[in-house]
Design a protein around this nucleic acid. Structure first.
Lengths: 226, 226
DNA sequence: ACAAAAGTGTTCTGGATACACCCATGT
DNA sequence: ACATGGGTGTATCCAGAACACTTTTGT
């Protein structure tokens, strides 16, 4: 077998919705290259673990986060993407509910933090390219799968759901039509709890009913939001 | 840097439409493991080439095919997928017009052939899993991008296009509505050439107008076939 | 009483679907 | 003349889009 000198790594783009806007999880590197730059969490794959296991392990180690939703995104393999050695990175797309996790930096004293998607620092390596691909994926998925509910807290306000769609799809949404459409899917439970946020009429809390969704899906129902 | 013992390979699922049905390109292995099994074309990535360059090179070497359309599909990394060493395979999805290429097996006397998608041999490694992912991707892409035209000859019959959709989407199509819809996109040219296939009324030939398509796309038009 | 956000229904329009007969050729 | 596949139009229905006022609370 021919000799080959390529390393395999995984990197994750972790999305979360908090403080009324979309955030991603970054770590601050404390080694060269790109020392002190912010970067996507990730690292080399161990010989005996699967790619997915590698991402889950790295996320736990570097940030203390366990993901709610994880899928493979794209594999980046340009020979020069890492200035030291050739590294092929298999990237993953993850969704978490930020309030479910306490982020903790690695023992190597890296920093970890949530960054608003509209106020990001420069990223190490080709990580901003990876992020672009992830944002596109998120935008697409949002329209044909109920992934929004993996980003919101268990109990959420309709206005948060609406705001989430508005932010990610980058377009205005008609509140009445949006609500009508989502409710027509019969995958939400309206709770008997109201939340007042200081001013305005208190809003009702909703909960996503995953079982209902899978049941409807099995019966041929298609989630679809324009 | 920790020691890692993983190889990186690429494999391609190459689709083509010929003899009124969907085919894929396979090679017969002449080395262990899976000697004499049919497999997807592919091989190890060289240290200095990109992943995409590796696929293009391997396809040329092993089958003599140059692809018309190529995109990354998925990366398979289960530690045991190759019985010898650990190999992570970055797989690609390709479309070609079979009549544009003369397939030629490698000098190592491998065989190469087109196989009808509904009459496939057992495949080596996890290649049938890869193929499943590719078929799903093809089915999805067909509905929102005019990829069908990368599978058909330059000049084609409407009935071939229709048959292609019927085969891949695995459902019946209303001929009138299908034709109406496709023609409404204004991306086909009706040629002044007719073809008689033995019996029945001779059919008109059509040609896909790529420039028109890209022009419309830029103006916000969405290709969409249910 | 006013400001702020939540909640709610109807009309209109356009694309999707369903559907059946005539046409051009070869045998 | 008959068999075979090619080519075509209309009516119905439903989902998407557009659109504005009332309700509940805090200050």
């Amino acid at each position: 077998m021919i000799h080959q000198n390529i390393k395999v790594a995984v990197d994750a783009v972790v999305f979360g919705y908090k403080e009324k806007s979309l955030h991603i999880l970054l770590i601050k590197r404390n080694v060269e290259p790109f020392k002190n730059s912010w970067a996507l969490p990730g690292g080399l794959v161990l010989d005996t673990e699967s790619l997915e296991e590698a991402v889950i392990r790295e996320l736990k180690e570097e940030t203390n986060v366990t993901v709610d939703y994880l899928e493979q995104l794209y594999t980046f393999g340009k020979p020069t993407r890492d200035p030291r050695n050739r590294v092929v990175s298999v990237t993953y797309f993850a969704l978490v509910k930020p309030e479910h996790h306490i982020i903790i930096a690695d023992t190597d004293a890296d920093e970890v933090d949530w960054f608003d998607i509209n106020d990001l620092p420069d990223l190490a390596f080709d990580h901003s390219k990876i992020l672009d691909v992830a944002r596109t994926r998120l935008r697409n998925k949002l329209t044909y799968e109920p992934v929004g509910f993996d980003l919101l807290a268990d109990k959420f306000l309709f206005s948060d759901l609406e705001n989430l769609y508005k932010t990610i799809l980058e377009k205005d949404i008609d509140r009445r039509n949006f609500r009508k459409k989502i409710l027509s899917f019969n995958i939400l439970e309206e709770l008997d709890e109201k939340v007042s946020e200081g001013r305005g009429r208190p809003a009702n809390l909703f909960r996503f009913n995953k079982e209902q969704y899978f049941k409807h899906k099995k019966e041929g129902f298609l989630f679809d939001i324009k």
